[in-house]
């Protein structure tokens, strides 16, 4: 109980972040961008590694505020790499997947090359992969909490427009109306910021799982859109809390893995239970 109250802010931030990732992630998946999130995740990881190296070279210590060198380099590197991918694959609709996988394998090779050259940053690579909310600084937690609230408000206000744009991008591959470009750009910027902060603190595995699981689970049961959002709002924080509790009991097990596995088990249990209850 003492540990829970000590880490209350960490749990709260993990919970709200999991909800925001789930809401936005469902639309990212619906826009046929699932595989792109894996490329984004990997480029954010390499960006963080480059930021750490640059910080060491420039002798800039790791300070506690939310916007430090790793985040800045990560943003710049991700924008550069993703921009290059978009430019290279423009007009090659059917070759996008192999181009993307080529970029991905390049990034994986690059990250291992960086770690081989500077073995002291291996822990940063592991952190960017699995993450741990327990180790996040207070200021980082406040920044993520604030951003998550703003992003959630934007989602609540513009959900109709977001939904229609997801439909257009999935059905036609482009927007159909000239009036929604601002929303489209803001949606993409929010997803990028969310992913960068989430990967920095909670790792790629947690971030991608929270984004992709809701819509994956929803394919095995009947949901309306409101029910899907409710499912995310209830299940994601429950998994975060459950993962945290398990981590307190079994200290050696990684928090993010426990949260992700809890989410999957709870989601599958929900689907099975719903099917059993709907049987005549």
């Amino acid at each position: 109980m003492e540990l829970i109250s000590f880490y209350l802010l960490n749990i709260l931030v993990g919970a709200i972040l999991s909800v925001v990732l789930g809401l936005y992630g469902s639309h990212v998946v619906a826009r046929n961008k699932t595989i792109e999130t894996i490329l984004l995740g990997q480029s954010i990881q390499v960006g963080i590694l480059l930021g750490v190296i640059l910080g060491k070279l420039m002798e800039i210590g790791h300070n506690d505020h939310g916007l430090h060198l790793e985040i800045i380099i990560s943003v710049l590197f991700t924008c550069l790499l993703y921009g290059t991918y978009e430019y290279v694959s423009k007009g090659k609709r059917f070759a996008k997947t192999p181009i993307l996988v080529s970029f991905y394998t390049f990034l994986v090779s690059l990250s291992y090359l960086i770690v081989a050259i500077s073995p002291q940053i291996e822990s940063h690579m592991v952190k960017a992969f699995l993450g741990d909310i327990v180790t996040a600084s207070k200021v980082e937690l406040y920044v993520i909490f604030g951003l998550s609230l703003v992003f959630m408000a934007f989602f609540a206000i513009r959900q109709n427009q977001i939904k229609l744009q997801s439909f257009d991008l999935s059905s036609f591959g482009h927007l159909v109306s000239s009036s929604g470009k601002k929303d489209y750009v803001l949606f993409n910027l929010i997803v990028l910021s969310l992913m960068i902060y989430s990967i920095h603190v909670l790792g790629i595995v947690f971030t991608l799982s929270m984004m992709i699981f809701p819509i994956t689970i929803s394919q095995f049961t009947k949901f309306t859109l409101k029910q899907l959002y409710t499912f995310v709002i209830i299940l994601a924080p429950t998994s975060v809390f459950l993962g945290f509790l398990l981590n307190i009991k079994y200290e050696n097990l990684p928090t993010s893995s426990l949260m992700v596995i809890s989410y999957l088990i709870l989601g599958i249990s929900f689907v099975i239970l719903k099917r059993l209850l709907s049987r005549p």
Binding site: F167, S170, F172, H174, S178, Q219, F223, T224, L228
Partner: peptide, 23 residues
Amino acid sequence: FSHFFLPQMENKEFLLPLSLGDL
């Protein structure tokens, strides 16, 4: 000017639950 471009329908399924009235 503002425009709305409705392309040819490809009869694709949509991953999110969506009703005709939502459109």
